[in-house]
């Protein structure tokens, strides 16, 4: 069933917000104001949004070190995220988490995660909770092609099958685990095949096509919400930046990113399809672009001028109370 125009526009807005958030961070990082390690999601937007457009606040996701896109797609406040990345007191995690640990329980966002393979077992736990409550909700574990080689992920997949947990494993194969190609590091080169080996349905889709991801997620949800247990989506995608900001990307052909920006840009692909099919017009999409640019500008300005945490904040939130 085709999505109505307001839903299409919302999906576009989400993807565009992620894109501009990341492209802007890439620029702002040059100023030296942003601490720590930052891993950008540009290029993969259709995956986060194609999946999360199906979810509400009461569904759960567990994310990765490359988590900004998942956070935005799941509804985290963009300015709160920007403040967090700048290490400010009013950031979503009070500055204590930073880029790799953005979380918002009220939005069903169980956290970005700086440990590759850290998220999937947590997502299975969330799925068990959904099943226990019989609330019809699901949990999604996002991971990259790198995470599909971690034992923790295998254990999470098996447990989800054993318990028929309403969990959905989404592997975003962007071609690289850090500085090494997935075509080397993923032994079978077939992540979906691995998932089938654990006894769950799995499909591979074009991660630069919002509609392909959205349709795959619809099937996974149908299964999970009707007691069918877990399934896996392997989305073939690309990242437009390095593993982390500052990575010279020596492992990629010099023209690869430029080529992928031409041929695998999910925003361009989306726009071409919805305008060709007459579902949305350029004017509406351009208006979203302008709106998003304004939001990102405001969030950066807010982050720059926001106050840092105080000394007293260092000792809070280790436990409920001391």
């Amino acid at each position: 069933m085709p999505l109505p125009p307001d839903r299409l526009l919302r999906a576009y807005r989400q993807m565009k917000t992620i894109r501009e958030f990341e492209e802007r961070l890439h620029v702002e990082i040059q100023t030296g104001e942003i601490p720590g390690f930052t891993h950008l999601y540009s290029g993969q937007e259709a995956v986060a949004v194609g999946v999360c457009e199906h979810l509400g606040d009461a569904d759960w996701i567990a994310s990765t070190h490359r988590g900004h896109g998942h956070c935005i797609a799941k509804g985290c406040d963009v300015t709160g995220m920007m403040l967090e990345i700048y290490g400010r007191r009013d950031g979503l995690c009070k500055g204590k988490g930073g880029s790799m640990h953005i979380a918002d329980m009220s939005k069903g966002m169980l956290g970005a995660n700086a440990i590759v393979g850290g998220g999937p077992p947590i997502a299975v736990g969330a799925a068990i909770a959904c099943k226990a409550r019989r609330d019809g909700k699901v949990a999604v574990a996002f991971g990259g092609d790198g995470s599909c080689n971690q034992g923790t992920v295998f254990e999470a997949m098996n447990l989800a099958v054993v318990l028929k947990a309403p969990a959905i494993f989404v592997f975003e194969d962007n071609g690289y685990s850090e500085h090494t190609g997935a075509d080397y590091a993923v032994g079978s080169r077939d992540i979906a095949g691995r998932a089938r080996g654990f006894g769950m349905p799995a499909e591979t889709c074009d991660g630069s096509d919002f509609f392909a991801v959205h349709a795959a997620m619809a099937r996974a949800l149908e299964l999970a919400r009707n007691g069918g247990g877990p399934s896996t989506i392997e989305a073939k995608t690309t990242r437009f930046f390095g593993h982390f900001e500052g990575d010279p990307m020596l492992y990629r052909a010099k023209d690869e990113v430029a080529r992928h920006r031409e041929t695998m840009d999910c925003l361009r692909i989306f726009r071409a399809r919805v305008t060709t099919e007459g579902l949305l017009d350029d004017a509406a999409l351009d208006a979203v672009d302008a709106e998003v640019m304004g939001l990102i500008d405001r969030s950066v300005a807010a982050a720059r001028s926001a106050a840092p945490p105080t000394a007293a904040d260092l000792l809070t939130d280790v436990y409920v109370s001391y």
Binding site: H179, D183, A185, M249, A253
Partner: peptide, 18 residues
């Protein structure tokens, strides 16, 4: 270990990348 050399697979040839 991980990326003790780097550059295996990928599209730039198998030169050291890390």
């Amino acid at each position: 270990g991980e990326d003790v050399v780097g550059g295996l697979g990928g599209t730039a040839g198998e030169d050291e990348a890390a």
